[in-house]
Design a protein around this nucleic acid. Structure first.
Length: 635
DNA sequence: ACGCGATGCGCC
DNA sequence: AAAGGGCGCATCGCGT
């Protein structure tokens, strides 16, 4: 709840340039801006101007008293200070590096909801009216410059002639000796940020800004910390990829599927597919499909080689340079995390740590720094839990919720329903590795993950292949019937979504966060409710975990560092001696934070210690119940 | 030379 | 009535 006497302050920092290994460089100055007349000039002597009736100033890095007062909330002139920045996570990380004692206060200000971000607010507004997907990939659409033009019709200079990239030169110069342009440039950013913030409030109702800003900060700290790789493993990984490419590439150019310059000749490849004589799959636009399934189906050994070549090539070009960089401890892999995409989830790039390809030795290249272990903790069937919560809210009764409260494995439960056997029998046969049960559970799992999104029986057949399940059309339809009968609330769920979004596109409001998402069609809406809720809960958990790691000496997590966030999973780098305790606390914090989003559903987590990044690591405890590092069988 | 759509595939 | 979503990022091929 904003108090009556709230002051919003636009904030910006200027720094040395970011370098590989250092995303929170030295501070040069801080600039700020707030609206008259809420606040008075009672602090330091400063440069002042009043565009847009805004009071603004610039502080040299040697004086951060104002910032401290605002961040700590110690101001006596205002009950409640909201700090606003454009990508303010960066500024907060810079300030925390400059003045480490501020860090707990920064977390506290975030926790109070007193720090917001104009970039995130813009994204929230765009998601709300359905225009996000248009702008997401356009450069500049979420820059401060872009927003100043859009909302204020002001052209901001960002060119070579500005001081933008040159503040490092001024660090050791007293502010009074700075060129006027350098001061003004910085001040202007703060002023523009404040003006944009106010304009955004006019544009539409904004929900969830503070929570998203919190997540952005935690994610940014992860980028700043980075994660290192194991040079030996990296070399092995690179060798496998380059050998495969060299070996197959030569053959492929000989048979004419590749050109001399090493590029694939899709025209020839498509001709080859046609030539094979089998059934030919076409793409949406009518071209001959060249996906793995189609190429393998031809039975042509050259096309099979091509599949292997392409995979190796892609792996190599996506990962090699980052893996090599990370094997130098002073330049860890510092992926960029983006706190908000249309679904409410996060994304990650350069490299995308959220999709490390399995079974390639890629994951295993990532290791904790010396003296540390990785702690990996993920939620168990999180999106089914959030779906169960949502159907509970909507209909008061949800079989999914009930079964979860009974501690039932939802996949096995549905498998038992499919086979018309009691759940208890399924549990027993599953424990005995009964192959029929195992297969049924795989099918059930595919159904439980696919159908909630509104999938039809036909698409499901394709989808199920990913779970190693082949179904006829009849079987798929029967399965869908069984699924609805097992989870009767799901008929009501789809009916409800239909009424919300109608036959065209509509607007939905997320539960808990009240975040809006506009321009959504049926299946998007089906997914958005539970996927968004899961994401919001996981992000809240990440923030709290980061706070404990960085700023709470009482916590077992203090001193650990989050290094990865993969939708429903958090991975920490943790000093070995304390890692077991940290792991248990990590799991506990993740569950309790999620509880705020799924109050009626028990949330389970699985946690493991690892000496490198493994998929499928499990909790291993010694005789006294203390966690120890999990190792794969072959090591 | 560069931009962009189409295609494909990895992860959750 | 019927309807998986949504990220990142590579290559290829075509158009400016």
């Amino acid at each position: 709840m904003p108090s009556k006497n709230q002051l919003t302050i636009g904030l910006d920092t200027e720094t040395e340039l970011v370098t590989p290994g250092n995303l929170a460089p030295r501070l040069a100055c801080t600039s700020w801006a707030y609206r008259e007349p809420a606040y008075h000039q009672h602090l330091h002597e400063r440069v002042e101007g009043k565009p847009l009736r805004i009071i603004s100033g610039v502080e040299h890095h040697t004086t951060t008293d104002d910032i401290a007062i605002w961040v700590t909330g110690a101001s006596h002139t205002s009950d409640d200070i909201k700090l606003v920045g454009h990508n303010i996570a960066f500024d907060m990380a810079v300030l925390a590096t400059h003045s480490p004692w501020l860090l707990p206060y920064i977390f506290a200000a975030y926790a109070r909801g007193n720090i917001e971000d104009t970039m995130i607010r813009e994204q929230l507004l765009d998601i709300a009216d359905g225009s996000f997907w248009l702008k997401r990939k356009k450069t500049g659409s979420y820059s401060l410059k872009g927003l100043a033009e859009k909302y204020l019709s002001i052209e901001m200079e960002k060119g070579e002639e500005t001081y933008r990239l040159r503040y490092g030169e001024l660090i050791d110069t007293p502010l009074k000796d700075w060129p006027k342009e350098a001061v003004e440039y910085s001040r202007n950013d703060a002023v523009m940020t404040l003006a944009v913030y106010n304009a955004q409030s006019e544009r539409g109702e904004l929900k969830d800004g503070p929570a998203q800003a919190r997540a952005a900060f935690a994610l940014h700290l992860m980028s700043c910390w980075g994660v290192v790789t194991d040079g030996e493993r990296v070399n092995e990984f690179v060798k496998v990829a380059s050998d495969t490419m060299a070996c197959h590439g030569e053959k492929l150019s000989r048979v004419g599927l590749m050109r001399m310059n090493g590029t694939k000749d899709l025209t020839k490849i498509r001709a080859r597919v046609k030539q094979s004589g089998g059934p030919v799959k076409h793409t949406e636009k009518g071209n001959i499909a060249t996906d793995e399934e189609s190429l393998i189906a031809t039975g042509d050994p050259d096309l099979a080689l091509l599949v292997e070549f392409s995979k190796a090539q892609k792996l190599d070009s996506v990962w090699t340079r980052y893996l090599r960089q990370g094997s130098n401890p002073s330049t860890p892999v510092q992926a960029r995390f983006h706190c908000l995409v249309e679904s409410g989830r996060t994304s990650c790039s350069k490299p995308n740590l959220q999709n490390p390809h399995r079974a390639t030795g890629l994951r295993e290249c990532f290791i904790p720094r010396k003296g540390n272990l990785f702690i990996a903790c993920d939620y168990s069937t999180l999106e089914l839990c959030t779906l169960a919560q949502i159907t509970t809210w909507l209909f008061r009764k949800s079989n999914m919720a009930e079964q979860l409260r009974n501690g039932v494995d939802l996949h096995l439960h549905f498998a038992a329903q499919m086979l018309r056997i009691p759940y208890e029998d399924a549990v027993e046969r599953s424990a005995n590795r009964d192959p029929e049960i195992k297969e049924a559970r795989q099918i059930a799992k595919a159904a439980n993950f696919g159908y909630p999104g509104g999938m039809g029986a036909n698409s499901f057949r394709q989808y199920a292949k990913g779970y190693g399940v082949e179904l006829t059309e009849k079987q798929a339809e029967k399965l869908r019937e069984d699924w609805f009968n097992t989870w009767p609330e799901m008929r009501d769920y789809f009916k409800h979504v239909s009424t919300v979004v109608g036959n065209e596109k509509g607007v939905i409001e997320q539960f808990v966060s009240k975040r809006l998402r506009g321009g959504v069609h049926f299946t998007q809406a089906c997914n958005s409710f539970f996927q968004g809720l899961a994401s919001e809960g996981a992000k809240a958990a990440l923030f709290e975990v980061a706070r404990l790691c960085y700023a709470d000496p009482e916590s077992a997590l203090f001193g650990s560092r989050p290094v990865m966030f993969i939708h429903d999973e958090i991975i920490l780098e943790s000093p070995s001696e304390n890692a077991p305790e940290a792991a248990d606390e990590l799991a506990e914090v993740m569950r309790s934070e999620m509880k705020r989003f799924t109050p009626d559903i028990p949330i389970g987590t699985t946690v493991a210690l690892m000496e490198r990044w493994y998929k499928n690591a499990e909790a291993v405890r010694d005789s006294s119940g203390r966690l120890t590092a999990w190792r794969p069988n072959d090591e």
